[in-house]
Design a protein around this nucleic acid. Structure first.
Lengths: 203, 203
DNA sequence: CTCGAATACTGAACGGCTTCACTATGTTGA
DNA sequence: TCAACATAGTGAAGCCGTTCAGTATTCGAG
């Protein structure tokens, strides 16, 4: 995870090719930040109403900000020798408690397919961070548990997590963080609703 | 892109395993939305100060909202037979104009490695949406151009793009969209700065 | 003019994620 | 009880992204 550079600041439109410097922001008449290059490209391309335009700018900003914020975290996890998903997998196992957990719930918690969890646990097992034991109550299942090395690893990972995110988010005021959460969840709720509609109508 | 379901609503912590329903939000005393389940899990896990907590909640909300918003768009692109990155690649080529463009700039615009663009253009070429011609001014290079089929495809893609995003973002007021953009860009700027620092100090 | 460095692209190999197909086991209802 | 169905996990294959190495070409300093 190191390719998320300044150039990542593109959503669905290219920025002008000769701008390799870090992003420049400007403040619009309302006092809000915006990215003049993105706006210029979108305008040149045409047909987006002003309302759609502000929506596209907002969603793009959110996505890129999220990617970039996590990029720093993932860089640091890489130094610990684990990927973000491996970290999350270990957090799930840890959260499940002493007895470990089947792989299936991990998939739900992580929002990925069960097949993927098999691979993640494979990777953790190969590194000696987790182990599989057969479930005494269900012979189909396996239980994933953290090894002591795994416990030690997520302890470091959690410290890195908090520090990395706080280094970025700490630059916002408490009020700003609350607003950002609020607005993001509003988008999230809308997106869920739209997705649900689509799935219903598409069968 | 259909695995981004309710269960995706996990960041670094599992939600409780038996909640498969769509997300429920609540309103905190300040009138802001929040996700009580996430908060509960984070609290149980322990050691996050209140300030770090609100940062983690904000960034998580942003990321998931972005994913979910794009999920609907990507579903629709899939019905057109193209992936999001293939769409973006075509948009880049289209934006470059009549003469097409080398692959290298596309990689910069997209924020991916040049190698990846080779594959994306391969895929487009295989579908007859783009074509490679050798660059008369640089015999190392190839020029990617859209075929008429490609032009037709991105025309549909752009319509889908605007509609899909507007269906979600249209539920926010103009003011909310501006604020969301503003706050996201603030996070983005902070993340860029932090990343730049890390890279400088790490060599 | 030429030799060393930079550039444009691609092959090989790999990680993360997906779907589909399959095995093994558990559950349930006629 | 036993056939039908559901569930837990994994192999195979494929997409998208990466890095690293290699080829062909251009650029630039001496």
């Amino acid at each position: 995870m190191q390719k998320v550079s300044e150039k990542q600041l593109v959503d669905d439109e290219p920025v002008v090719p000769d701008l390799l410097q870090p992003t420049r922001f400007e403040t619009d008449p309302h006092g809000y930040l915006y990215d003049p290059r993105f706006r210029e490209v979108m305008a040149k391309k045409g047909v987006l109403g002003a309302s759609a335009m502000s929506g596209v700018e907002a969603i793009r900003s959110m996505v890129i900000a999220g990617k970039l914020t996590y990029a720093g975290f993932e860089d640091q996890l890489a130094e610990l020798g684990i990927s973000h998903q491996q970290y999350r997998t270990m957090m799930c196992i840890s959260y499940a408690g002493e007895d470990g957990t089947q792989l299936h719930p991990i998939a739900e918690w992580l929002g990925v397919t069960p097949r993927n969890v098999t691979g993640l646990v494979d990777a953790l097992e190969a590194q000696g961070l987790a182990e599989r034991v057969s479930d005494p109550r269900d012979r189909r299942a396996v239980i994933a548990r953290l090894t002591p090395a795994g416990e030690a690893k997520i302890k470091k990972g959690r410290a890195v997590h908090e520090i990395a995110l706080e280094r970025v988010m700490g630059r916002l005021t408490e009020e700003e963080k609350l607003q950002l959460r609020h607005l993001s969840l509003k988008v999230l709720a809308a997106a869920e609703e739209v997705l649900a509609q689509r799935r219903k109508s598409n069968g």
